[in-house]
Protein backbone atom coordinates (compact mmCIF):
# COMPACT_ATOMS: atom_id res chain seq x y z
CA UNK A 1 0.00 0.00 0.00
CA UNK A 2 1.43 3.43 -0.89
CA UNK A 3 3.06 4.96 2.21
CA UNK A 4 1.25 7.70 4.03
CA UNK A 5 -1.76 7.58 1.77
CA UNK A 6 -5.25 6.83 2.97
CA UNK A 7 -6.46 3.76 1.15
CA UNK A 8 -9.77 4.25 -0.62
CA UNK A 9 -12.14 1.43 -1.44
CA UNK A 10 -15.16 1.37 -3.72
CA UNK A 11 -17.71 -1.40 -3.28
CA UNK A 12 -20.50 -1.70 -5.84
CA UNK A 13 -23.95 -2.97 -4.93
CA UNK A 14 -23.28 -2.01 -1.34
CA UNK A 15 -26.64 -0.83 0.00
CA UNK A 16 -27.30 -4.27 1.50
CA UNK A 17 -26.19 -7.87 1.78
CA UNK A 18 -22.61 -8.86 1.08
CA UNK A 19 -21.72 -5.42 -0.35
CA UNK A 20 -22.88 -3.61 2.76
CA UNK A 21 -21.11 -6.04 5.10
CA UNK A 22 -17.95 -5.65 3.00
CA UNK A 23 -18.04 -1.86 3.38
CA UNK A 24 -18.25 -2.22 7.15
CA UNK A 25 -15.43 -4.78 7.23
CA UNK A 26 -13.18 -2.55 5.09
CA UNK A 27 -14.03 0.57 7.10
CA UNK A 28 -13.05 -1.26 10.28
CA UNK A 29 -9.59 -1.91 8.81
CA UNK A 30 -9.15 1.82 8.36
CA UNK A 31 -10.06 2.24 4.70
CA UNK A 32 -12.12 5.16 3.46
CA UNK A 33 -15.07 3.47 1.81
CA UNK A 34 -17.32 4.54 -1.05
CA UNK A 35 -20.64 2.71 -0.75
CA UNK A 36 -21.84 2.22 -4.32
CA UNK A 37 -25.57 1.87 -4.90
CA UNK A 38 -27.98 1.97 -7.81
CA UNK A 39 -31.57 1.49 -6.69
CA UNK A 40 -31.48 1.82 -2.91
CA UNK A 41 -30.02 5.12 -1.65
CA UNK A 42 -31.55 4.59 1.81
CA UNK A 43 -29.75 1.28 2.21
CA UNK A 44 -26.50 2.92 1.14
CA UNK A 45 -26.98 5.75 3.65
CA UNK A 46 -27.65 3.17 6.36
CA UNK A 47 -24.38 1.44 5.50
CA UNK A 48 -22.59 4.80 5.61
CA UNK A 49 -24.13 5.59 9.00
CA UNK A 50 -23.07 2.22 10.40
CA UNK A 51 -19.51 2.65 9.11
CA UNK A 52 -19.31 6.12 10.64
CA UNK A 53 -20.75 4.92 13.94
CA UNK A 54 -17.85 2.45 13.97
CA UNK A 55 -15.45 5.38 13.60
CA UNK A 56 -14.90 4.80 9.88
CA UNK A 57 -14.93 7.10 6.87
CA UNK A 58 -17.64 6.41 4.28
CA UNK A 59 -19.71 8.11 1.61
CA UNK A 60 -22.59 6.86 -0.55
CA UNK A 61 -22.05 7.04 -4.31
CA UNK A 62 -24.63 6.42 -7.00
CA UNK A 63 -23.23 4.05 -9.63
CA UNK A 64 -24.92 2.03 -12.35
CA UNK A 65 -22.18 -0.41 -13.28
CA UNK A 66 -23.82 -1.16 -16.64
CA UNK A 67 -23.32 2.42 -17.75
CA UNK A 68 -19.85 3.74 -18.62
CA UNK A 69 -20.85 7.35 -18.00
CA UNK A 70 -22.26 6.54 -14.58
CA UNK A 71 -19.15 4.53 -13.69
CA UNK A 72 -16.87 7.38 -14.72
CA UNK A 73 -18.95 9.91 -12.79
CA UNK A 74 -18.93 7.77 -9.66
CA UNK A 75 -15.17 7.28 -9.75
CA UNK A 76 -14.76 11.02 -10.29
CA UNK A 77 -16.80 11.72 -7.17
CA UNK A 78 -14.85 9.23 -5.10
CA UNK A 79 -11.57 10.72 -6.32
CA UNK A 80 -12.73 14.23 -5.45
CA UNK A 81 -14.07 13.36 -2.00
CA UNK A 82 -11.87 10.52 -0.78
CA UNK A 83 -8.99 10.01 -3.22
CA UNK A 84 -8.11 7.52 -5.93
CA UNK A 85 -9.61 4.07 -5.63
CA UNK A 86 -7.02 1.52 -4.51
CA UNK A 87 -9.43 -1.26 -3.59
CA UNK A 88 -12.30 -2.18 -5.89
CA UNK A 89 -14.90 -4.75 -4.91
CA UNK A 90 -17.10 -5.67 -7.86
CA UNK A 91 -20.11 -6.88 -5.95
CA UNK A 92 -23.13 -5.49 -7.81
CA UNK A 93 -25.11 -8.47 -8.98
CA UNK A 94 -28.39 -9.38 -10.57
CA UNK A 95 -30.31 -12.61 -10.90
CA UNK A 96 -33.65 -13.69 -12.23
CA UNK A 97 -34.07 -17.42 -12.27
CA UNK A 98 -35.74 -19.28 -15.11
CA UNK A 99 -35.18 -22.28 -17.30
CA UNK A 100 -33.05 -21.52 -20.35
CA UNK A 101 -35.58 -22.91 -22.79
CA UNK A 102 -38.00 -20.09 -21.91
CA UNK A 103 -35.51 -17.46 -20.77
CA UNK A 104 -36.00 -13.98 -22.26
CA UNK A 105 -33.12 -12.38 -24.12
CA UNK A 106 -33.64 -9.19 -22.11
CA UNK A 107 -33.13 -11.10 -18.86
CA UNK A 108 -30.02 -12.73 -20.23
CA UNK A 109 -28.61 -9.34 -21.24
CA UNK A 110 -29.52 -7.71 -17.93
CA UNK A 111 -27.76 -10.49 -16.02
CA UNK A 112 -24.58 -10.43 -18.10
CA UNK A 113 -24.47 -6.62 -18.19
CA UNK A 114 -24.59 -6.24 -14.43
CA UNK A 115 -22.59 -9.25 -13.30
CA UNK A 116 -19.89 -9.32 -15.95
CA UNK A 117 -19.77 -6.18 -18.10
CA UNK A 118 -20.27 -4.04 -14.99
CA UNK A 119 -17.23 -5.56 -13.31
CA UNK A 120 -15.20 -4.97 -16.44
CA UNK A 121 -16.26 -1.32 -16.75
CA UNK A 122 -15.43 -0.59 -13.11
CA UNK A 123 -12.13 -2.42 -13.35
CA UNK A 124 -11.09 -0.61 -16.52
CA UNK A 125 -11.85 2.72 -14.86
CA UNK A 126 -9.92 1.78 -11.71
CA UNK A 127 -6.80 0.32 -13.30
CA UNK A 128 -4.94 3.45 -14.52
CA UNK A 129 -4.77 4.80 -10.96
CA UNK A 130 -3.71 1.44 -9.55
CA UNK A 131 -1.05 1.00 -12.23
CA UNK A 132 0.33 4.42 -11.45
CA UNK A 133 0.40 3.67 -7.73
CA UNK A 134 1.91 0.25 -8.37
CA UNK A 135 -0.63 -1.02 -5.87
CA UNK A 136 -4.21 -2.18 -6.09
CA UNK A 137 -6.68 -4.80 -4.97
CA UNK A 138 -9.60 -5.98 -7.03
CA UNK A 139 -12.01 -8.51 -5.58
CA UNK A 140 -14.77 -9.86 -7.79
CA UNK A 141 -17.76 -11.36 -6.07
CA UNK A 142 -18.61 -14.40 -8.20
CA UNK A 143 -20.65 -17.32 -6.94
CA UNK A 144 -20.64 -21.03 -6.24
CA UNK A 145 -22.85 -21.06 -9.33
CA UNK A 146 -19.74 -20.17 -11.35
CA UNK A 147 -18.17 -23.48 -10.36
CA UNK A 148 -21.12 -25.86 -10.48
CA UNK A 149 -24.17 -25.64 -12.71
CA UNK A 150 -27.56 -24.69 -11.36
CA UNK A 151 -30.75 -25.58 -13.16
CA UNK A 152 -32.68 -22.33 -13.64
CA UNK A 153 -29.56 -20.19 -13.38
CA UNK A 154 -27.96 -20.52 -16.81
CA UNK A 155 -27.52 -16.76 -17.23
CA UNK A 156 -26.42 -16.14 -13.66
CA UNK A 157 -23.95 -18.98 -13.57
CA UNK A 158 -22.56 -18.14 -17.03
CA UNK A 159 -22.06 -14.51 -16.03
CA UNK A 160 -20.37 -15.50 -12.76
CA UNK A 161 -18.16 -18.06 -14.54
CA UNK A 162 -17.25 -15.23 -16.92
CA UNK A 163 -16.29 -13.14 -13.93
CA UNK A 164 -13.91 -15.90 -12.84
CA UNK A 165 -12.31 -15.84 -16.31
CA UNK A 166 -12.02 -12.05 -16.13
CA UNK A 167 -10.39 -12.39 -12.72
CA UNK A 168 -7.75 -14.84 -13.95
CA UNK A 169 -6.83 -12.93 -17.11
CA UNK A 170 -6.59 -9.64 -15.23
CA UNK A 171 -4.42 -11.28 -12.59
CA UNK A 172 -1.96 -12.12 -15.33
CA UNK A 173 -2.17 -8.71 -16.99
CA UNK A 174 -1.47 -6.57 -13.96
CA UNK A 175 0.07 -8.99 -11.45
CA UNK A 176 3.51 -7.56 -12.16
CA UNK A 177 2.47 -4.14 -10.94
CA UNK A 178 1.59 -4.79 -7.33
CA UNK A 179 -2.07 -5.29 -8.21
CA UNK A 180 -3.96 -8.45 -7.29
CA UNK A 181 -7.24 -9.61 -8.78
CA UNK A 182 -9.13 -12.35 -6.99
CA UNK A 183 -12.62 -13.79 -6.90
CA UNK A 184 -14.72 -15.05 -4.04
CA UNK A 185 -17.49 -17.55 -4.66
CA UNK A 186 -20.17 -17.37 -1.99
CA UNK A 187 -22.53 -20.29 -1.61
CA UNK A 188 -26.02 -19.81 -0.24
CA UNK A 189 -25.94 -16.63 1.84
CA UNK A 190 -28.92 -14.95 3.48
CA UNK A 191 -29.43 -11.74 1.46
CA UNK A 192 -32.25 -10.11 -0.43
CA UNK A 193 -30.97 -11.81 -3.60
CA UNK A 194 -31.65 -15.26 -2.17
CA UNK A 195 -35.01 -14.33 -0.63
CA UNK A 196 -37.11 -15.28 -3.67
CA UNK A 197 -35.76 -18.84 -3.60
CA UNK A 198 -38.46 -21.36 -2.75
CA UNK A 199 -38.42 -23.25 0.51
CA UNK A 200 -37.81 -26.42 -1.49
CA UNK A 201 -34.77 -24.93 -3.20
CA UNK A 202 -33.40 -23.67 0.14
CA UNK A 203 -33.82 -27.13 1.60
CA UNK A 204 -31.96 -28.65 -1.35
CA UNK A 205 -29.05 -26.23 -0.88
CA UNK A 206 -28.96 -26.94 2.80
CA UNK A 207 -28.66 -30.68 2.13
CA UNK A 208 -25.77 -30.06 -0.26
CA UNK A 209 -23.91 -27.78 2.16
CA UNK A 210 -21.68 -29.69 4.58
CA UNK A 211 -21.83 -26.81 7.06
CA UNK A 212 -25.52 -27.60 7.45
CA UNK A 213 -26.48 -23.93 7.47
CA UNK A 214 -26.48 -20.90 5.20
CA UNK A 215 -23.74 -18.31 5.30
CA UNK A 216 -23.95 -14.75 6.51
CA UNK A 217 -22.90 -11.66 4.54
CA UNK A 218 -20.29 -10.99 7.25
CA UNK A 219 -18.62 -14.34 6.62
CA UNK A 220 -18.13 -13.44 2.96
CA UNK A 221 -17.12 -9.87 3.80
CA UNK A 222 -14.30 -10.95 6.07
CA UNK A 223 -12.73 -13.01 3.27
CA UNK A 224 -13.09 -10.09 0.85
CA UNK A 225 -11.48 -7.75 3.39
CA UNK A 226 -8.61 -10.17 3.81
CA UNK A 227 -8.01 -10.34 0.03
CA UNK A 228 -8.19 -6.54 -0.11
CA UNK A 229 -5.62 -6.11 2.62
CA UNK A 230 -1.92 -5.35 2.39
CA UNK A 231 -0.96 -8.80 3.64
CA UNK A 232 -2.65 -10.67 0.78
CA UNK A 233 -0.19 -9.38 -1.81
CA UNK A 234 0.83 -12.87 -2.91
CA UNK A 235 -2.73 -14.07 -3.52
CA UNK A 236 -3.49 -13.34 -7.16
CA UNK A 237 -5.93 -14.91 -9.59
CA UNK A 238 -7.36 -17.04 -6.81
CA UNK A 239 -10.93 -18.22 -6.72
CA UNK A 240 -11.88 -18.54 -3.07
CA UNK A 241 -15.01 -20.44 -2.16
CA UNK A 242 -16.95 -19.20 0.85
CA UNK A 243 -19.74 -21.71 0.70
CA UNK A 244 -19.72 -23.94 3.76
CA UNK A 245 -18.30 -26.72 1.62
CA UNK A 246 -20.99 -26.64 -1.10
CA UNK A 247 -18.46 -27.03 -3.93
CA UNK A 248 -15.96 -29.16 -2.03
Amino acid sequence: MPEGERTVALVTGASRGIGSATCLALARTGLAVAVGYRSDPEGAEETVAKARADGGTAIAVSIDVRDEVSVDGAFGRVEAELGRVRVLVNNAGYTRDGLAVKYATEQWDATVETNLTGAFLCTRRALPGMLKARWGRIVNVASAAALRGNAGQAAYSASKAGLVGLTKSLAREVGGRGITVNAVCPGFVHTRMTEPQSEESRQRYLEMTPAGRFGTPEEVASVIACLAGPEAGYVNGAVVSVDGGLTA
Binding site: P128, L131, K132, E173, V174, G176
Partner: peptide, 10 residues
Protein backbone atom coordinates in the same frame (compact mmCIF):
# COMPACT_ATOMS: atom_id res chain seq x y z
CA UNK B 1 2.56 -4.02 -24.04
CA UNK B 2 1.53 -3.04 -20.51
CA UNK B 3 4.56 -0.72 -20.21
CA UNK B 4 3.36 0.99 -23.37
CA UNK B 5 -0.20 1.35 -22.10
CA UNK B 6 1.13 2.85 -18.88
CA UNK B 7 3.28 5.29 -20.84
CA UNK B 8 0.26 6.28 -22.91
CA UNK B 9 -1.80 6.81 -19.74
CA UNK B 10 0.94 9.11 -18.44
Amino acid sequence: SLDLVEAVLA
